[in-house]
């Protein structure tokens, strides 16, 4: 690995000042499961690595902030997969966190890192999109809250400035009953990046939201408002037709090595239908239990 300087700020102001000072020559380090690999293979060059893990304000906790769940920038996938509040209210996110890499990876990989890395295949992002998450960023001008759907530009690029960092991801507690699920397609069992990664939530109000990744430069969110997908009595054929209309934005790359574009598109529809079915079943289960 090429040599770089290492900074270990202990508060957010210091971290922001370091980023402002070094600009694009600085890189933020969270769990390092993406960054260390890129620094080693030379695809990212950093003169200064700013480690977030000793910043007092950024502990690894998940907080209840009056109707919102706030997941700090240091929270790792293992903690997200194990949190009972996330398991209950944001099941798709819990499931997505639990399939990232291996135990060793999940013990280091942060949710904020998965988001900031902005891979089109990032598994937690579709779940964050359907759950209506906000990304909370801090920079020299203070804090701003960015809706997750406005955060991603294209592979590896977000709206975050070079002098900003993400301090938390916030999830609004659902106000109606919901059933949600994350599903994905990989080449093999065990750990692998997804050829299709998809999350779905069906609400008691009949609205269905689906988000999918690995089928274009950024993950996409689509919504079915009129209750067709959420209707347990509607036919699979009708739902497939609706999904095809919703998924028009999918544009899988022909060059990706994980799976061909035709296969990805076909699997997107299959997984979409399966996810809708499972989300409906989970919603029904919740309706019964309350």
């Amino acid at each position: 690995m090429r040599a770089f300087a290492y900074e270990r700020p202990t508060d957010l102001d210091e971290a922001v000042a370091l980023l402002a000072e070094h600009g694009p020559r600085a890189r933020v380090l969270a769990g390092g499961t993406d960054l260390i690999i890129r620094l080693r293979d030379g695809s990212i060059r950093a003169e200064v690595v700013v480690d977030l893990k000793r910043i007092a304000e950024l502990d690894g906790s998940i907080r209840d902030d009056g109707g919102r769940l706030s997941i700090g920038a240091r929270t790792v996938m293992t903690a997200i997969g194990a949190d009972p509040r996330i398991g209950r209210d944001f099941q798709a996110l819990a499931e997505a966190a639990a399939v990232v890499g291996s135990t060793q990876i999940r013990n280091r990989a942060t949710l904020a890192g998965n988001v900031c890395n902005a891979s089109p295949a990032a598994d937690t992002v579709p779940a964050l999109l359907i759950h209506g998450a906000d990304v909370v960023a801090v920079g020299p001008a203070g804090r701003r809250r960015i809706p997750s759907d406005e955060f991603f530009v294209r592979s590896g690029v977000t709206v975050l400035g070079p002098d900003e960092l993400v301090c938390a991801i916030e999830l609004p507690r659902p106000t109606i009953r919901e059933g949600s699920v994350h599903v994905r397609r990989t080449r093999r069992r065990g750990h692998d990046l997804a050829s299709v990664t998809l999350a779905c939530v069906v609400g008691a109000d009949g609205v269905t939201r689906l988000a999918y990744g690995s089928l274009g430069p950024r993950p996409l969110l689509v919504t079915d408002e009129d209750g067709l997908l959420a209707d347990p009595a509607a036919s699979d054929a009708a739902k497939m037709q609706r999904l095809a209309a919703l998924f028009v934005g999918a544009s899988p790359s022909a060059r990706s090595m994980r799976a061909g574009p035709e296969y990805r598109l076909a699997m997107l529809h299959v997984l979409g239908l399966r996810a809708v079915r499972e989300a409906i079943a989970r919603l029904a289960l919740r309706s019964g239990s309350r």
Partner: peptide
């Protein structure tokens, strides 16, 4: 050296990690 194989696994404060991905 890319976190795939686990041959470098150690416990860091009791938690398993790939030591090739930790400075």
């Amino acid at each position: 050296l890319v976190g795939e194989c686990g041959a470098c696994t150690v416990l860091l404060d009791g938690i398993s990690v790939d030591s090739c991905l930790v400075l």
